[in-house]
């Protein structure tokens, strides 16, 4: 059963992602992006990372995608359909992105990963929380400072100047 779900989710995610980068209308691209985020959240659930899946939906869909849509709407003629979608180097980029995918896929399938099967502990979320305020407290605090700085910075940058 799981492989089927995986295949389905992968299809949704990759398809939506492909639409994100190719659609002419930016607003539609943002909506496709939301679908891709949902697909990734499904992958996380498949990997037994339920908390992360919820965080993914809350942050990416709830915040980032919304922000993107707002930005698009604030700068309306950004989605002028007469504008070309891609810059002039898109052909090269496409070629090399495909090459990169082939190479990466070849590498990840060839390497023997140190797979260690194990059951997911029941108290994942509890552990996550205690790790954040335990061994990872410094990065955690730095991340919170980063968020504050980003917030202040965003306000200052986007503020209208006389």
């Amino acid at each position: 059963m799981q492989p089927v779900i995986f295949a389905l989710l992968a299809l949704i995610t990759l398809g939506a992602a492909a639409m994100v980068v190719t659609t002419r209308n930016l607003l539609r691209a943002a909506l496709w992006l939301i679908l891709a985020f949902f697909g990734i959240a499904g992958i996380f659930i498949l990997l037994n990372a339920e908390f992360l899946a919820v965080a993914q939906i809350l942050i990416y869909v709830g915040a980032i995608a919304t922000l993107v849509i707002f930005a698009i709407m604030l700068t309306r003629n950004m989605m002028d359909p007469s504008q070309p979608r891609f810059n002039e180097q898109w052909g090269v980029v496409g070629g090399f992105a495909a090459l990169l995918f082939v190479v990466l896929a070849a590498i990840v399938t060839r390497v023997t990963w140190p797979v260690a099967a194990g059951d997911v502990p029941a108290d994942t979320i509890q552990r996550l929380g205690s790790d954040f305020v335990g061994p990872y407290v410094v990065p955690f605090e730095v991340a919170s400072v980063l968020l504050v700085v980003a917030m202040v910075g965003a306000i200052i940058i986007a503020r209208e100047r006389e």
Binding site: V21, Q83, N87, A97
Partner: peptide, 18 residues
């Protein structure tokens, strides 16, 4: 890897900053 490469394409080939 696939998702990453699609993202690379978007980041490098899109004309619009968003």
């Amino acid at each position: 890897a696939g998702l990453f490469c699609i993202g690379v394409f978007g980041a490098l080939a899109r004309k619009n900053a968003v």
